[in-house]
Nucleic acid binder design. Structure first.
Lengths: 236, 236
DNA sequence: GTGCAGAAAATCGTATACAATTTCGCCCAC
DNA sequence: GTGGGCGAAATTGTATACGATTTTCTGCAC
């Protein structure tokens, strides 16, 4: 199943082959094939996709606006390495925004939307059963798709785009600070939320959503962990 | 007084002379010196700022990520012309997000923050007294600064950036669909909100904020109004 | 005068070239 | 052996060049 990010047309007042490169790199970051801190040199990216540095640079720039890549003047682009504080802000933003999205989605939701959500849930469950890093990657993505789909249902393209950023960055944070190998008590919670929406218990759905986000965040060990730092290891 | 947008450091993991160009164009858009739909050709922008098309293009691209400029493949960049539906989404997003920001800001707010807000309010009032388009521009910006400052106080850089986008785009919407010459019953409402925060009446502050946003939106005439249409001129 | 080629001009899309900056290795002094 | 500095290599910053697409203008047919 294609990811929500690529299936949802995004914005596409776009223009070049840049989107393809951007999306490919984004997927690689979100799926953790690229780890935080990895250098993304313009030449390398360009060669990899058989385009000039011009387009590679544009794609990296785009990703920097989404907070997935940080570009430093005269030094280049790196897969973002969110600080614990940034991580907290990301989740604070989600707590702030997702209940509202949920309520808005509840207004517009149709039966087929609910079907779609349940479908996602099934897929998620299936992946949970599997073993291996590939399955874990797919699981993270599927888990994100649940939240992204809710945003899409809300009908607000702006909030949708914002959530895409938050979910992608959350994935980075989990990659960096996640503890339990499977942070997906989430699965059951997703189901509960759908159920609450379906039966019209909006307030309960919001409460569940907040708990859900809190649970994800609780699985993090938010301590400074700068690079594999040799120096830092002694400065403690 | 410098605008909040440029005073607030934004993100600045930035790199080139692009930020200067981007900010200059953004200010021009937000202050309505550039009207919606205006073509922004890469060559013109480049010549204007004495840089090559490369940098001009990068700046325009950046603005397109913020929704202030729309770039169409092989056609170029234009000052965004938000549709009525986009306008509604922008304000829906603000209603969804600003109460939360307000609550978060209330947690972190200091006495000096409150002083700062009151300062803004004074400035706003002063501008309301003046006449002329220049004053109106400054007034729009000052009004936006109130909301931006609250976001800054909240301490969440992500929500702050998001609000910057929403406020800037709101300005575009008001430019396009605003009716009353002075949409700034807002001034008094800003004062009320500060007051409510100061006295710890959080729920009331949120209610006031929602009313405030509703008032701004109520001043809009959200009817399709494509280009300065010659045809439309007769359909009246 | 209206409408439709077709060519010329302007503008964007992408690659390449060159300058500026950083990074890395090397050599030498201590 | 350690540290500092110098120079080469690599990488980014910016400009320019050239092909592709769109827009505008022109001229001819009707």
């Amino acid at each position: 199943m294609k990811s929500a990010a690529s299936a949802m047309s995004h914005d596409d007042t776009q223009d070049t082959g840049v989107p393809q490169i951007r999306d490919a790199i984004r997927d690689a970051i979100v799926e953790r094939r690229l780890s935080p801190g990895t250098k993304l040199s313009e030449s390398d990216v360009g060669n990899l996709f058989n385009v000039s540095r011009t387009l590679a640079r544009a794609a990296l720039q785009a990703l920097s606006y989404e907070g997935l890549v940080s570009v430093e003047k005269n030094r280049g682009a790196f897969v973002a390495y969110p600080s614990p504080d940034e991580a907290r802000q990301i989740f604070a933003a989600r707590r702030l925004v997702e209940p509202g999205i949920l309520r808005e989605a509840a207004v517009h939701i149709t039966r087929s939307d609910i079907e779609h959500l349940k479908q996602l849930l099934l897929e998620e469950g299936r992946l949970m059963g599997e073993r291996g890093q590939t399955a874990r990657r797919a699981e993270i993505k599927a888990s994100g798709d649940f939240h992204l789909t809710l945003a899409a249902i809300s009908g607000n393209a702006i909030m949708q785009r914002f959530m895409e950023e938050l979910v992608a960055r959350s994935s980075l944070v989990i990659a960096l600070y996640g503890q339990s190998t499977v942070s997906s008590c989430g699965h059951a919670e997703h189901g509960d939320i759908i159920e609450a929406i379906e039966s019209g218990e909006l307030d309960r759905a919001c409460r569940l959503m907040l708990h859900h986000i809190a649970h994800i965040e609780a699985d993090l060990d938010l301590r400074e962990r700068k690079s594999v730092g040799l120096k830092e290891a002694f400065e403690l």
